[in-house]
Design a protein around this nucleic acid. Sequence first.
DNA 1: TGCAACTTAATTGGCGCCAATATAATCGCC
DNA 2: GGCGATTATATTGGCGCCAATTAAGTTGCA
Lengths: 214, 214
Amino acid sequence: MSDRKEKVATVRRVLANEIAQAIRLRVYRPGEWLRQIDLEERFQAKRFDVRSALEELAVRKTIEHVPNRGYRVAEIDLKTYEEIRATRMILETASAAAIVTNIDDEAIARLEELARAFSHAVREGTRVDQSEVNRAFHQIMYSFCGNAVLEETIWALRDRSRGSRVTVWASHESLLRSDREHYEMMEALRVRDAGHLAAVIARHLTRVGQEERG
Amino acid sequence: MSDRKEKVATVRRVLANEIAQAIRLRVYRPGEWLRQIDLEERFQAKRFDVRSALEELAVRKTIEHVPNRGYRVAEIDLKTYEEIRATRMILETASAAAIVTNIDDEAIARLEELARAFSHAVREGTRVDQSEVNRAFHQIMYSFCGNAVLEETIWALRDRSRGSRVTVWASHESLLRSDREHYEMMEALRVRDAGHLAAVIARHLTRVGQEERG
DNA sequence: TGCAACTTAATTGGCGCCAATATAATCGCC
DNA sequence: GGCGATTATATTGGCGCCAATTAAGTTGCA
């Protein structure tokens, strides 16, 4: 409508997101150094833009900056991981109420699709496939919390916890449980049961944290 | 202890914090343009560092970047302000429980001091004095939530909401209420009443939001 | 006098060069 | 042959220049 808040997609912003995606896709793994020359070639970008993008990601804590050494994919320690998990727990369970009131049937249908896609990925997909489908599912769900800032904050935290060396789904059993929980979440959404939705989300996050230690 | 996670204070990071502080102190007001040449002189920094610092603040959403126009102090709209408030509400009330269990007498004594300093600032200080003392009070309190990530997240949101054009304490009456609430929070801390602490925090945030509209 | 086109001034931002630094390789000594 | 010192190589990062862009100022015309 108005030209007020037009989001300007600068080169560095786009590049930062591309690199962030590559990190999610495990092209670059936690602890790995991101050499500027490689990035220049891979993304066909100028050196300056690469540096800007890396700086942006460092501010977002996706990567870590070591002066005169460069940038590497953040490798978060267990303590920080637990802290992120706890903070996510607070925000994600709190958003359940708003999601339940705002969600519509069309969105639930899209979630249904993604839940099935996840079931499929569990059987024949790669870890990355599973992770991306799972991401898409939650992206739709949280987009209905009706609070852009809350949404951003949740995703900032989720992206940060990617830096964990431990795999998110440690066992195949936990993958199957995540799978079932997607359907359980949708059931809670259909009957507009905020408490139930929050409970499923909490259970999911708790489980992930516990498997780590065990 | 270990040299592992040594926080490196680069020039740009220090400068970014200095500029952020200047914004908090209302040296630069919401909507105002930050000219790079001015910043160079004021902070005795090289142009490149100024630009890096501005980029960092833009990523942190403290300022806003308009290509070929420059950077200006973010001027958040009412909707975003409300969203930040709602998110803060979630996080800050949720941290009450941990604060209550972790706080010690020495910290409460320091809070007592700051609460008195605030009372004093209400009577004879400037808006900025009041704001900074208030900030110090909450900084100590939230530092006892035992979760560095949660703490960071809370402060990121608080700093973002500074960009609001509306004054935080609209009336003198609301200032007095904030003043009283500091003592009420300490009382809750002394008797280890998490519920009460959360309630005071919630009341404070709700009130601030309501005065805006009214 | 008001408005539009043009000129001038101020400001931002892309970019490449090279010095500073870290890492790897080589060499020499024990 | 192992290990420390030294040289060579690779990589990062500070910085200044100038083109591109925008804003301000000025002139001319209706």
